[in-house]
Amino acid sequence: MSKATRATKMLEQAGVAFTVHSYDYDPGADKVGLQAAEALGEPPQRVLKTLMALVDGKPVCVIVPSDCEVSMKKLAAAFSGKSAQMMKPPEAERLSGYKVGGISPFGQMRRIPTALEQQALTHELVYLNGGQRGLQLRLSPQDVVTTLNATVAPVVA
Rank of each mutant, 00 (worst) to 15 (best):
Q45Y: 06
L95I: 15
L34I: 13
V155G: 01
K82W: 01
T5H: 01
V47I: 06
A157Q: 10
T19E: 15
P113M: 09
R133V: 05
L75N: 00
Q132G: 05
K88M: 10
D30L: 14
R46V: 13
G130F: 04
A120H: 09
D56I: 03
A92T: 06
L95H: 10
V126M: 09
M52P: 03
V144F: 01
L75F: 07
E124H: 12
L34C: 06
P44N: 09
C61N: 11
P89W: 12
V155S: 03
K88N: 09
K73I: 06
F18S: 01
K3F: 12
F18L: 07
A7Q: 01
A39L: 05
P59L: 12
M86H: 08
M10Y: 00
V145H: 07
T8Y: 04
R94L: 14
A17W: 00
T122W: 06
R94H: 13
M72A: 09
G97L: 00
A92F: 05
F79E: 02
G131P: 03
V32D: 06
P59T: 14
K31E: 07
M52Q: 10
T8M: 03
L139T: 06
S104N: 03
E69L: 13
L54F: 14
H123D: 10
K9Y: 04
C68T: 07
Q13E: 15
A14Y: 03
V100Q: 02
G33S: 05
Q142A: 15
L48P: 01
E69T: 13
K3L: 15
A4P: 00
P43M: 11
P89G: 12
V156E: 07
K88V: 14
A77H: 14
R6K: 14
T19Y: 06
P65H: 12
E12Q: 13
S140Y: 01
H21R: 11
V156H: 10
K88W: 02
K49M: 04
S140H: 02
T8I: 02
V32E: 09
A120T: 09
A157L: 07
Y23K: 08
A78M: 03
L54K: 14
R94N: 11
K73C: 01
L54P: 01
A78S: 14
Q136V: 02
D30M: 12
E117T: 04
D67L: 11
K9E: 13
E91F: 09
G41V: 02
V60K: 13
M10R: 08
P113W: 09
S96V: 02
L125N: 09
L40T: 07
S22L: 13
T114W: 10
A153P: 00
G15W: 03
G134N: 03
K74Y: 00
P43A: 12
K9F: 05
E12G: 05
P89H: 11
L48S: 03
T146M: 09
K49Y: 04
P113S: 10
L40I: 08
G33C: 05
V155A: 03
M1T: 08
P105T: 10
V155M: 03
S96N: 05
T147W: 01
K74R: 15
G41I: 02
V152C: 08
